[in-house]
Design a protein around this nucleic acid. Structure first.
Lengths: 146, 146
DNA sequence: GGTGAAATGGCCTTTTC
DNA sequence: GAAAAGGCCATTTCACC
């Protein structure tokens, strides 16, 4: 993981469909050399994969919320994870410091769908209480700069 | 935006570097037809682009936090956006319902870097108060399923 | 560096309004 | 009949050994 790798990753974050030759032209490497490094980075898990950035509105996921989750007593991290994993509306989840045990990022088609998702979230056995914050508008969403 | 488009988008979310021929084989279209649709989806803004999914730890962004931002009086959305945009540690920001005005997702190298980022965030003129929640572990992070 | 495959543009056909 | 969308083909570029 040297400077060259970082620049390759940076290029791929900007445009994951760039050809190896294009990336090579930017970082000063031949196309095969770039491919070898990308393969290595995928192998090491530094690169997890490549995905399309989709406008959530356009796909009918217009409503989202952040939910503070409070659990009954001490629930191990992996149990929280496996409890949340089956809910398709959960796009991200984190265990956190502070009064809440976890923060769950929900994405739903509309308010009704969000309500349904929240009900199913609250039905997860170890969850005692939830505090929801509905997103009014997305101000900013971007990949972290290396 | 028909079923075919949705399936193409779904394929690209799964693997943004798949060839048009591979996508076409799955959805039942020729490679040029897939490309024409992808170009159209990019043009319409339904597809925003293609990015690499990077392990944040590996790139030295191991620490993150969610910050509730409270503003002085009524601050228009676009001012909040332009106030947060210059901070590189801000990976996402949303205006929200409830007591807070916005939720800011911060990503930093370590606790010290996070502290610096928080100080710079609190220095934004219209921000009166912040409530930080530090992420202990990432449980789940995935693209929304169409 | 050579071979095989992918991307891309042109052109024609088909379907639908 | 005109417009929209897909298939096929040819050329250039790229990926992989």
């Amino acid at each position: 993981m040297d400077t060259l790798d970082q620049r390759i990753v940076s290029q791929l974050v900007t445009d994951a469909r760039a050809s190896y030759a294009e990336i090579g032209a930017v970082v000063g490497l031949s196309a095969p050399a770039v491919k070898r490094r990308v393969d290595k980075l995928l192998d090491l898990g530094i690169l997890r994969g490549f995905t399309a950035v989709v406008d959530p509105e356009a796909l009918g996921w217009g409503t989202e919320a952040f939910v503070e989750v409070h659990c009954h007593g001490n629930v191990p991290t992996h149990r929280i994870r496996s409890g949340l994993e089956p809910l398709p509306e959960v796009v991200a989840a984190y265990t956190v410091s502070g009064p809440a045990d976890a923060i769950v990022h929900l994405r739903a088609a509309d308010i009704h769908h969000l309500e349904t998702a929240l009900e199913r979230l609250r039905a997860v056995e170890f969850i005692s209480r939830t505090v929801s914050t509905v997103v009014l508008s997305r101000l900013l969403e971007r990949p972290p700069q290396p």
